[in-house]
Design a protein around this nucleic acid. Sequence first.
DNA 1: TTGCCATATTAGGTGGGACTAATGTAGCTT
DNA 2: AAGCTACATTAGTCCCACCTAATATGGCAA
Lengths: 229, 229
Amino acid sequence: MPAGTTDSGLTRSVEDYLKAIYQLSHQGGFAATRDIAGLLDLAAPSVSGMVKRLSEMGLIEHVPYRGVQLTSQGRRAALRMIRRHRVLELYLTRHLGYDWDNVHGEAERLEHAVSDDLIERMAAALGDPRYDPHGDPIPTAAGEIEETELVSVAEAEPGTELELRQVGTQDPARLRYFAEQGLVPGVRVTVTDRQPFNGPTTVYLNAAATARVVGRELAQVLWCRKVLP
Amino acid sequence: MPAGTTDSGLTRSVEDYLKAIYQLSHQGGFAATRDIAGLLDLAAPSVSGMVKRLSEMGLIEHVPYRGVQLTSQGRRAALRMIRRHRVLELYLTRHLGYDWDNVHGEAERLEHAVSDDLIERMAAALGDPRYDPHGDPIPTAAGEIEETELVSVAEAEPGTELELRQVGTQDPARLRYFAEQGLVPGVRVTVTDRQPFNGPTTVYLNAAATARVVGRELAQVLWCRKVLP
DNA sequence: TTGCCATATTAGGTGGGACTAATGTAGCTT
DNA sequence: AAGCTACATTAGTCCCACCTAATATGGCAA
């Protein structure tokens, strides 16, 4: 493998861009330059430059002034990085005492350095897991990822019963708060009320038999599956 | 931490150079440009350039046309990398099914990416180990390293009893061969014979009660402690 | 339609870290 | 003392990936 590249033959930067583009465009549509720049904390012209290189490499499709989309090759590479990241997160929490609020940064750096072999060993040690500590699905080694229809607590209708599936933030403070509140993947809640004008949602924790009031910002990152009655 | 740098504030390259220089100069003397280039598989002018930067950073002392030595700051950074490398090697063999002949490369890449925190968690999970799978001493987190007087099988006098302590190669094929031969750290052997003109050494494996003939090249990397009778 | 604003792109520059080709130096040999 | 050789250094490029400043574009509001 050429100098400055990782196992995949891509540079760390390229791997980061692909992950970001996946995140911004996986539910259809284009990833905008500005949004990529925001996510990776870079200046917009840096992104323009990289976009050119990535599309020359055949990893993305670029429509000037509109944005970019992954090619199937780019998507494969992105999902590979996401698998690495999520397997690492789960391994670090299960085997090395990390909490769900402090694994992200560590996994972020390791994902570029580990070999595919090591990832598969970790996955095996974890029993080929399907979800990471935040409930996000782990792509298979073959590049398949589970796509589920989820609703956020912020948009669910009062009266619905929900199973919390994914917690869509990496912010340690928010994650710690969710854990304290018992709002972790797998929990079942019933939406009992929502205040008007983007107000907070009240949910009832079925098992713990207690209620929680969740502000809109937080409610928007709690992704749930509807439980049929 | 600035872009392109690791946890230590140094770049990957700098970390690699420091490790190499430590290896070449830790038993006194200077590390020559050519030897550093050889160890890192670089062209000599690349090393000259980096040497300049490293000495401006205060990590090494450079005597033109003679070579370089680590400053105490450089030594500290080098030992930190060596600790990381060896803890990783041991963790990978103990917990993830790696063998002593295939851990090196993986550790080589991970050592730049892991946080100090993760290394200490791994070390704790291993019970604060003192030696890596090849018998090399693991520096403490404080930067102390055990220095032992060792003799190689190639130079030990016939008749001496030895305890094998370190296997000084990373070559997978050689390591596999040593393992097959039962020549692993901890084993006790007695030197029974050596052929003249740099010929092979014969050692007797005390516990297994069998003899092994070891050619000079291999004998030179088997480092032992003399066992007093 | 025209202007304006947000966003994107191009132009030009920087630093890290590598390379090859050319030049310099130390030290052995004669 | 001279010359040869091995090694080290300098000179000059290149690539990656970032930056700021300047320019272009697309789409909305007047």
